[in-house]
Structure formats: C-alpha cells, structure tokens
Amino acid sequence: MVRKRASIVLSVLAFLLPAAQAQRLSLDLRTTAGHNYAQGGYASVGALGCYRPDSAVAVRFGVQCGTGAVMAYTADWTAAMRLGSVKLQLVSKGLWRRFAGWHIDEFSGLVAIGIGWRGWDVHVGLASRMMADSRTAWLDERTGWLSEPFNLMYELRYKAWFGTRRRWLGELAVANYDDFVIDRAYQPLFSCSAGWLVSEKVELAARAVLHPTGMLSLSANYYEAWFNIQMILKW
C-alpha cells in the first residue's frame, strides 16, 4: 500500500515539476556516517528540497533521520542581492531536532547576514534555542524547558571550481552551523568538500567534517568526525 502511494506521488512529481518549475527545483539526497563521544558510531540519511522562485531567493526544506532515534527537520530561506562582484545575503533558518532516546526536543532559529566575493563566503548571525523535555508538558511547567537566547553564529567558506569545463568543485569551511545543526558558539565544524558536476542535472559531492570541542574558550579536545556523500538532482 505504502509503495503504491509512493510510486503515485513520485510519478505525479516527475510529470508536473519539470514543466512547472524548470531549473528551479533541486533535491539533495545524502547519507552520513560518523563518530562522536555521545553516540559512538552513527549513521543517518537525509533529503533537502530547494525551490528558487527567482535568482535572488532560495527556500529549502529538509529532513534527516539517524540511528539513536535522532530526527531533524529544517527549513531555511536565503535572499541575495548583488553589488558589482559582491554578493550580499540574508539567511534565516529554523531547525527542530528530536532526540527520542534522550527525551529532548530542540528548537533553534537563526538569522545571519553574509557577504560573498570571489569564492569567499562569510556569514555572521545570532541563534536562539529552546530545549524541551518531551516527557513533560513543557508549555505548562517551568521545569520542562530551557532557552538559550544568545548564540553567536559564523561561517567562513571558500570554494573553487576546477577543470577545463569547471566541473570539479573544492571547498573548505569553518562554521558552527550546518544543514541539520545549529551549534553553540565555541563548537566549530571544520569541513572539506569535493563536488563533481556529472551533468547539468546531477551533481555528486563528498564531505568530511571534524568537530572538536573546547576550542578557543576551553581547552581543545576531539569530539566528533563525520563523512557524507550527496547526490543533488536538479530540475
């Protein structure tokens, strides 16, 4: 029954979307494997759909589920404008992560401004977070939730295209937020990515991320590393 419904939905999407939103939609499918001190080894799969109503605006919705009963849902919105060779951006993002095994629901919101120039992207912003105990009626009880109103967010990214037809992409980044993470100020994620533009409609990418803890404010220590591969389909 489920397979039948899924195939009907996919058939309708395959028929409608290319015609209605030519070159405006993309779907990012990814699988991740990693290790951290809290979960040990873990794996997850995720999908991010992106809609671009015009060249200046992008809206994305995504879901990720992983071992250890961790679910994450994200929605973000980016608006960009160009001033000569400089790109200015405004980003807002919402993230809901459910750690079912630990009875925690985490709701985070982020607003950041960014500037891009010749492959460089710099974003700075603020994020707020609310943690709720999923076992209690947290809206009614003070002891069932906590908020972290001020978190400095940052992202520094450099990417470059290679090859005669510019089909290879290399990227280095440090940030404390990602598609399915909005972390604390001193929890940077160092990442290294490589992408391959297979065709105009398909892109493959691989990414390795190192997440140390205690950096810059405490005393630095390894905490986490993960690796993911992505397939991005464009319509």
Binding site: N36, Y37, A38, M131, F150, R184, Q187, M215, S217
Partner: peptide, 19 residues
C-alpha cells in the same frame, strides 16, 4: 547558556549535554 554572561564562555557539545 541561558543568559548573556555565558556569551564568551564555551560549553559542552549539544548531544553530550542532552545525553
């Protein structure tokens, strides 16, 4: 990190905090 006094100080990673 419930107030501004913690703006400059570091904390544990979120997953470990929840665990």
């Amino acid at each position: 990190r419930t107030d501004l006094s913690q703006f400059v100080s570091g904390n544990l990673p979120l997953e470990e905090t929840y665990q």
